[in-house]
Amino acid sequence: MVIEFTKYHGLGNDFILLDNRHRSEPLISPEIAVQMCDRHFGIGADGVIFALPGQDGTDYAMRIFNADGSEPEMCGNGIRCLARFIAQLEGTETAGKSYRIHTLAGVITPRLEGDEQVSVDMGTPQLTAAQIPTTLGKPEEKVIEQSLEVGGKSWLVTCVSMGNPHCITFVENTDAIVLETIGPQFERHPVFPQRTNTEFIQIIRPDYLKMRVWERGAGATLACGTGACASVVAGVLTGKSDRLCTVELPGGCLKIHWSETDERVYMTGPAKRVFSGSYFI
């Protein structure tokens, strides 16, 4: 079996994109996705994204398998890459074009901008413990700067869902965080029944945040779009940041705006096509 693919990345968060428009279920299994994502024996990626037919009146649907075979609800960098992949498939890569995309986190609307940029209406953040989900605090209450014991240390954490769970903690120096050690302990902490993404945030200025991330199912990545969105929301909730921020990630910067008008989060960043090829199973 031969599968045609195109590889994209958003600030180094890289994905294998598959044209899945002819059927409603993913072309391949999570096990094959793991093989494709292997950086030594496969193509190499943080995940495989499928462009599926639309559901419930949307233009397209998105599914994604992480590098470990798990399936997240959504991916911010991934949906920017998907928007440009769809435009490539349609032959309509023009600024201003937008798509309504069905995801497991709801309907998301990316819009093509100039210079390989894509802006995305990420929807409204979910803030109660039950929505995250986490067992920190009461189900109906927000989790803002609550103490959590991880790796023998007490961390103040704020939890936000952007359709997928995020645990944000503010630190003095992100470079001092040993992600490979502490990241998995956060991800699989028992207070997060569906595991969690974890963002370590350094406040450079109220309008400029520096972030490192451990992604659920993918590990240390160069960027995480939903994580950047969740971190700005957490910064506002704790009084540490503005609603309009530049978020610096290891792979580059995203512009994040948590609108005071409609409470929706808007993300703008690049999505770059790298190469296309055939994968043999």
Rank of each mutant, 00 (worst) to 15 (best):
S119E: 09
F41K: 10
V118N: 02
T124G: 12
Y208W: 14
I86E: 02
S276L: 13
H22F: 11
T109S: 10
I3P: 00
D262C: 10
L156C: 09
D14R: 05
H166N: 01
F275L: 12
L136N: 08
S276V: 11
G227H: 06
E4S: 12
F275W: 14
A223K: 04
L89Y: 05
M36T: 02
Y99S: 00
I49R: 03
G106D: 09
S241Y: 06
G44H: 11
I49F: 07
I79A: 03
P193G: 05
G57R: 12
G251C: 09
F200Q: 00
L222R: 05
L11Q: 07
D59W: 07
R212C: 03
I256R: 00
R205S: 14
Y99C: 00
I32Y: 06
R188G: 08
T174Y: 04
F280W: 14
T6H: 12
H257S: 15
E71V: 12
M267C: 04
V191Y: 10
G78W: 03
G57M: 12
F200A: 00
E140H: 11
R264K: 15
Q194I: 15
C37H: 03
F85I: 03
G152E: 02
R273S: 12
A95Q: 15
L112Q: 06
P30D: 05
V120R: 02
R21N: 07
M1T: 08
I32W: 04
Q35I: 09
E172V: 02
E263V: 11
I168Y: 02
M1Y: 06
T268I: 09
V191N: 11
D68G: 04
Q55S: 12
P165C: 02
T94H: 15
G96K: 05
L244H: 15
G152Y: 02
D262W: 08
Y266E: 01
Q88I: 06
F280I: 14
T238N: 12
T246P: 08
G151W: 01
I28M: 05
L127Y: 10
W214D: 02
G57L: 11
V274D: 09
V265N: 01
M62W: 01
A95H: 11
T128W: 13
P139Y: 12
V150W: 00
S70T: 13
P26G: 14
F5E: 02
H189Y: 13
V107L: 10
A95I: 06
M36G: 03
D121L: 08
P53E: 08
I281D: 13
P133H: 09
A230F: 02
G183T: 00
Y266V: 00
R212H: 05
G42Q: 05
E248I: 01
S154L: 13
V232S: 03
I32G: 03
T92G: 10
E199H: 00
G114D: 13
E116S: 10
V236A: 10
C245Y: 05
R188K: 15
Y60V: 05
A130R: 12
D14F: 04
Q146D: 08
D38N: 14
G106H: 10
G277D: 07
Q185C: 07
K240T: 08
L82N: 03
E71G: 07
I203Q: 05
C75W: 01
A61M: 06
R23N: 14
A61F: 04
Q146E: 14
P133V: 07
V213F: 11
